[in-house]
Nucleic acid binder design. Structure first.
Lengths: 348, 348
DNA sequence: TTGTATGCGTTATCAT
DNA sequence: ATGATAACGCATACAA
């Protein structure tokens, strides 16, 4: 591998001068500048980023710690992160932490010296291990509970979004509204459940335990939960799934069981992944700007990196938006609810 | 930040000894070993990976260069890569290259010194820029044309998979079979188109140019292409989409147009993303082991990394499998085709 | 068993 | 305008 020394020797100058033209730092005569540029290019010299970051103590790299996410949420959030990172000259070092909590710690340790900051997503409510991390390095917590931690955090307006969707279902006349919950111990899942219960309480609907089905954020989980719901003596008339993947599984189960959507059963999801509008029927959902979520997380982190983290702790919350499509059906015959939400049809 | 020097001073030993216990290299007395471990832990010492890799010339990191992929393909292939990498103690440095070809070169340059090898996905057929990369570093080309390049490569059996699917449609009695093509200039897209044409020719079906619609691997693209197909004087009776996302868009367009699937129109996709089986009707597709694809790419790369690339060039091809669900309908009434393929129903 | 010293490739601080 | 040299944090050959 050709190093800066080789270039210096070939150009008959010192490494200092080579470094100066490469980084455009300090004065160099036009002649030597041209010469060195030419030699470096001819020798196909590429600076060794590792060595450079050792002395500058800047890696131009951000670490990303994610749980084992599936589907479009993962790709979208990474897209947002990478866009913003790349625009600011940063790279992304991605690590899917193991399920166990020690995994995230070892991952954090391994990132020492290779990243300037970390975006960590640790949705397990009881994963307090993050607290022990040497926060000498800027950290942004994403979609995670962060009580007490002195780090920036970014979350989704889960509770409010869920509450609005359930409220909408109530406004359509539904009183038996089921929920397919997210993974146990998951922060987003807990918040969405909270919004669901809040809306029911506000509507004066007494909660029915069997209507709260367990799920795990996967299509298969939504499918299974729906089968269970259909087996109930008193079926619900609406299903609110805590994310779109489960809602899609629910649609599949209902179709197989010959239950008409939305006539016999209204279905709503959460996230509004790009696929939602292409479902049959198109899926009503709570829109989450996933890409922007990733982008904003990196923005926050970059701020912490450039300002050496000497700012007041930030807690931001990205807002959601109700997107009503056909899977929740029309308003009840007797009355027209106010339409403050976005109504959308497929258009490409 | 606490360094190895700090630990050494605190433990009243030399840095060499500290290094020895940390890496378990060389002989150390049990007493000093215990002492140093205790001190290092107490001081929350974490080795600086950057400095370490400078001297060992090993970064324990693999670079991943991807185009701007969407949806489940991206997340699945990353999952496979990260699983295998992590199992071997490696990290993933991910970069989405810009569309332009110079982007991939700058990305490669930026990775110098921070990775031990690179998995590059450069599906643009005319992106010969990869050829110019300083291949002093091991490279595995993924889903890319690689004629002439002296690097390992891993591709999908696109042609064979497409051919089998179209052959299946032919066996069902279809003669007017449309294709929604992938992105222009894309290697996978070109190969799948080749398989499509091959199957038609083998069946003695004369190709009809309007039946070859352009697409871009997105749901919206599949939707638009299908609208165009439905406007044809002579409609096709089957649509083969070059990937599942487009097939999903096609299903959506057909549904809106009131065209029954599979009765009036058979639909098939490619990739068999996890969602495919939850479509309405469940989508027939050509199964691609996406996760394994990523895993295998990393395996090949790790081989190159540990063996310093001194092996004969490898070109591997992961095989596909026909997965027939309801979207392609039943066999024609007059005759029963041999069922050599996998038939599957939703089971969770 | 332990310590000293060198070097990895680069930038930064002095000189000149 | 240019060069010599000290760091950066660590691993390792060699000495003790």
């Amino acid at each position: 591998m050709v190093t800066i020394k080789d270039v210096a020797r070939e150009a008959k100058v010192s490494v200092a001068t080579v470094s100066r033209v490469l980084n455009d730092s300090g004065p160099v005569s036009d002649d030597t500048r041209r010469l060195i540029s030419e030699v470096a290019h001819r020798m196909r010299y590429v600076p060794h980023s590792g060595a450079r970051s050792l002395i500058t103590s800047k890696t131009q790299t951000l670490g990303v710690l994610l749980p084992d996410l599936y589907g479009e949420f993962f790709s979208e959030v990474i897209r947002g992160m990478d866009n913003t990172a790349q625009r600011n000259g940063f790279h992304l070092l991605i690590s899917r932490s193991y399920a166990d909590k020690s995994g995230i710690e070892t991952a954090m340790r391994a990132m020492r010296g290779r990243v300037d900051g970390v975006v960590a997503m640790s949705p397990d409510i009881d994963a307090e291990s993050l607290l022990n991390l040497p926060s000498t390095i800027p950290v942004v917590l994403l979609c995670s509970v962060s009580r007490g931690h002195e780090v920036d955090s970014l979350t989704i307006q889960n509770c409010r979004g869920a509450r609005e969707m359930v409220r909408h279902l109530v406004s359509l006349g539904h009183t038996r509204i089921a929920i397919i919950k997210g993974s146990a111990g998951n922060y987003d899942a807990a918040e969405r459940l909270r919004g669901y219960r809040m809306a029911l309480r506000e509507a004066g609907i007494v909660p029915d335990p069997p209507l709260e089905q367990s799920g795990n954020f996967t299509e298969a989980g939504g499918y299974a939960a729906t089968i269970d719901l259909l087996a109930l003596r008193e079926r619900p008339t609406a299903i609110f799934a805590a994310n779109d993947s489960m809602a899609i599984g629910a649609l599949s189960a209902l179709r197989e069981s010959g239950v008409q959507v939305p006539e016999e059963m209204a279905v709503a999801g959460f996230d509004d992944i790009p696929l939602a509008r292409f479902m049959d029927p198109p899926l009503s959902s709570v829109h989450v700007p996933i890409c922007e979520l990733g982008a904003r997380a990196v923005e926050l982190l970059l701020h912490g990196v450039t300002h050496k983290n000497d700012h007041a702790r930030r807690r931001e919350r990205v807002s959601t938006e109700l997107v009503i499509r056909r899977s929740t059906g029309a308003e009840p015959a007797e009355r027209s609810p106010p339409r403050t939400f976005k109504r959308e049809t497929v258009s490409v």
